Simulated assay, not measured.
Amino acid sequence: MKTIIVTGGAGFIGSALIRYLITSTDTKVINIDKLTYAGNLSSLDSIASHPNYSFIQADICDNKAMKQAFEIHKPDFIMHLAAESHVDRSIDGPSEFIQTNIVGTYNLLEVAREYWQNLDDELKQAFRFHHISTDEVYGDLGDSGKMFTEETPYDPSSPYSASKASSDHLVRAWQRTYGLPVVITNCSNNYGPYHFPEKLIPLVIINALAGNPLPIYGDGSQIRDWLYVEDHARALYKVVSEGETGETYNIGGFNEKTNLEVVTTICTILDELITNKPETVIKSEDSSFSSLITYVKDRPGHDLRYAIDASKISKELNWQPQETFESGIRKTVQWYLANEKWYQAILNGSYQGQRLGLMD
C-alpha cells in the first residue's frame, strides 16, 4: 500500500482528492493542512474515521513539522496542493501568497529532497513529488484562438499567478539540479461540491438563493475552461502514479464558457429547481434569478481567456473528464441546495464576500 502526503487537503481540490484516494484507491493518506480561512475539515467528514486517513495540522513553512511528518509517515508520494489561491485576495494582500506559495514550496522541496536522498534505491526510484499548479501561470490568451499547452511560456498577471509560477520554477529547478523526481500539473478552473464561497460559482448560487445581487466583473465576457473537481482528482492520481518523472501535464475540462454564460446557466437551473423564490426574484419582470445579475467594476489586470489543451494527459495517461459542464454544474447546484448547513457555517464565520461584488 502506497502512503501519500497531501498538503492542503482541507481545501476544495485537496479534500476532493483525499475523498477519491480513500474511497477509490488502495492508499494511505496523510493530510497536512494549516487550516486557514479556506480550510474546512467538514469537507472530509465522510472519510475522517477511515483507518487509512490521518490529519496533521501544520504550516508547510514549518521546517521542523514537515521533517517530522516525513520521518513518521515515510511517504511514497507527496501531492502538494497547499496554497493561497484567490486572485482578489492576492491583489489586496500579496504577502501571504509569497510566503505560502513560494517560501512554503521551497521548504517542502528541501524536506522532500533530504528525505528522498536517504531512501534505499528501490524506494528512491519510486518516490514522486507532485506539484499541483494552475493555468493562470500562462497569462492571458486574449482572442488569439490558441490554447495553453505544456510548452506555453509563462506570463502571469496577478500576484497569485506570479507566486504559483515561481513555485513551478522552483520545483523544476529541484528536479534539474538535485534530481528530485517531480511531476507538475497545471489545471483550469475547478468547480463542484465543497467549493469555498468566495469563488464565482458557489458565490452566485448562494447569493441567488438569498435573493442578493449576482456580481459579474466587467461585461462578463471573460472565458474560462471549467473542470469538475472530481474529474480533476482522478487526473491527479493518474499523474502521480503513472506520469513520467520531470513531465508537466495540463488538466482541463474541455468546457470553455464566459463568466456570463456560467452565471446564466446557474440561474436557469435554479429557475427550474426552486419553487419558493426570494422576494427580489418574484418581484422582477420575468421572475427569473437572472434578474439579480449585476455588473461590477472589473478586477485589476483581469485576464480575458484561459483555455487548456489537455491532449497530452489524454493520450499518454488515458484520462478524460467524465462530466460535461452541463452535467457538472447541475450536480454542483443540487449539492449546494442539499448542503445549506455546510456553507452557512462558513458564511457565519470569517468569510464575508470580500472584494467580488463590492461596488467601488
Score class of each variant (00 low, 15 high):
273 L>Q: 03
149 T>M: 06
182 V>R: 07
95 S>W: 15
146 K>R: 14
189 N>E: 05
308 I>Y: 08
144 S>V: 10
128 R>M: 02
197 P>Q: 10
327 S>M: 05
58 A>N: 09
102 I>M: 10
76 D>W: 06
101 N>G: 15
142 G>F: 14
2 K>T: 09
227 L>R: 04
71 E>R: 15
229 V>F: 02
24 S>W: 00
159 P>T: 03
123 L>W: 14
289 F>K: 15
23 T>K: 05
154 Y>S: 02
134 T>C: 06
290 S>I: 13
279 E>I: 14
300 P>L: 04
324 T>Q: 08
258 T>D: 15
263 V>K: 01
260 L>S: 09
321 P>N: 10
104 G>T: 07
58 A>K: 04
355 R>Q: 06
127 F>G: 00
188 S>M: 06
197 P>E: 00
115 Y>N: 08
178 Y>F: 14
126 A>T: 07
184 I>T: 11
47 I>W: 01
337 L>T: 00
259 N>I: 08
50 H>K: 06
337 L>F: 00
243 G>M: 14
151 E>P: 02
208 A>Q: 01
17 L>D: 01
176 R>I: 06
28 K>G: 13
301 G>V: 05
350 S>C: 04
316 E>R: 13
98 I>Y: 13
236 L>A: 13
184 I>R: 02
230 E>Q: 10
339 N>L: 11
61 C>T: 13
296 V>L: 05
224 R>E: 05
203 L>F: 06
320 Q>E: 00
188 S>A: 07
134 T>M: 04
106 Y>C: 02
11 G>N: 05
165 A>Q: 12
16 A>F: 04
166 S>E: 15
121 D>S: 14
8 G>L: 09
84 E>D: 09
154 Y>W: 11
235 A>K: 03
346 I>Y: 12
267 C>V: 07
334 Q>C: 10
179 G>V: 05
70 F>K: 15
127 F>M: 01
86 H>G: 01
328 G>S: 08
355 R>F: 13
343 Y>D: 00
341 K>F: 06
111 V>N: 08
134 T>S: 13
46 S>L: 14
313 I>L: 08
130 H>Y: 03
156 P>A: 09
3 T>F: 04
